[in-house]
């Protein structure tokens, strides 16, 4: 145990490890905050869908030899999020069908493009790391860290300042509209924020595992707490703890980072489910 702490202390001297921890915490926080809204609005799988769109956009940017892929990925993901969340009842292809179509299509087209026009000599490794985030979070540059910090501050700021409106739209959008709240604009804001969070989360857990980062903390918190504010705070704290645990465990034990974080989330979910059962039986 002492050896592990000593090794961890050595690792923390390395700048890229500190970057990974900083961005990991921020990404976990943003994902958890948005996750509560998405789970309650029954849009849990939108994280998965948008991450696949982001993968397709990333593939396109790689094939076009665009050095900085993030703007391209952000644009495509934001447009897709807006189309999915805003069109709502007016769409001819609704909800889960639209999401499935866009999600699978983007993944397939992205992989097809990478195979036809491979941007590097080791396509398998590049695709694997993008999909599962095995150690992408440990290869961040300082500029990427600052960008992630800026985006995270914006996301948290939006959530804090518009907390009441987000709460109202999450639980009863029709009533919110009837009382004069401009639900369309807030839905648009949520869509853009979700897209931004998804894009910055991809480096942490990869495209295929992003949904876990969004869903598990919220669901875990809901096992124990029934109040929106309590669930949100619990989900945020839980997500940060699981992410830190996942990153530290993976670098000490040589495991892929994305999967380890999700495993930590699963363990937390099981623990909170048990805690919820105990709480309910005690209150009876």
């Amino acid at each position: 145990m002492a050896e592990s702490f000593k090794l961890l202390a050595e690792y923390l001297k390395l700048p890229f490890v500190r970057y990974a921890l900083i961005v990991g915490v921020l990404v976990a926080l943003c994902s958890a905050l948005l996750g509560v809204t998405l789970v309650l609005k029954r849009f849990s799988f939108i994280g998965d869908g948008l991450s696949h769109v982001a993968f397709g956009a990333m593939a396109l940017a790689s094939v076009l030899n665009i050095m900085n892929e993030m703007p391209v990925v952000l644009i495509f993901t934001i447009i897709t999020a807006v189309l999915l969340l805003k069109t709502g009842q007016m769409a001819k292809i609704k909800g889960d069908a639209a999401l499935a179509m866009i999600s699978v299509g983007s993944l397939a087209i992205g992989y097809l493009l990478l195979n036809i026009f491979p941007p590097s000599g080791n396509l398998t490794a590049d695709v694997c790391k993008t999909l599962f985030g095995s150690d992408s979070i440990l290869t961040l540059k300082a500029t990427e860290v600052w960008l992630s910090i800026a985006l995270a501050i914006i996301v948290v700021g939006i959530f804090v300042f518009f907390y009441n409106k987000i709460f109202a739209i999450t639980f009863d959008e029709s009533f919110s509209k009837a009382t004069g709240t401009r639900a369309g604009i807030y839905n648009l804001v949520i869509a853009v924020v979700i897209a931004v969070v998804i894009v910055i989360s991809m480096k942490l857990v990869g495209s295929l595992l992003i949904s876990a980062l969004v869903i598990f903390p919220a669901l875990s918190a809901m096992r124990v707490f029934k109040n929106f504010k309590a669930v949100t705070i619990c989900a945020a704290v839980l997500s940060v703890v699981c992410t830190l645990t996942g990153i530290i465990t993976s670098i000490l034990v040589n495991l892929p980072i994305g999967s380890t974080i999700v495993a930590a989330d699963i363990v937390a979910f099981l623990g909170f489910t048990l805690a919820g059962l105990i709480k309910r039986s005690v209150s009876k």
């Binding site: 050595e10 890229f16 095995s134 150690d135 440990l138 540059k141 670098i251 980072i257």
Partner: peptide
Amino acid sequence: DIDVTKMGSTMTYSQVSNFMTNADD
């Protein structure tokens, strides 16, 4: 200054990746 031989496999690969991407540091 940097002993990569004492790192685990995940950290080793990440450190070498950082050598490539942030060489000037």
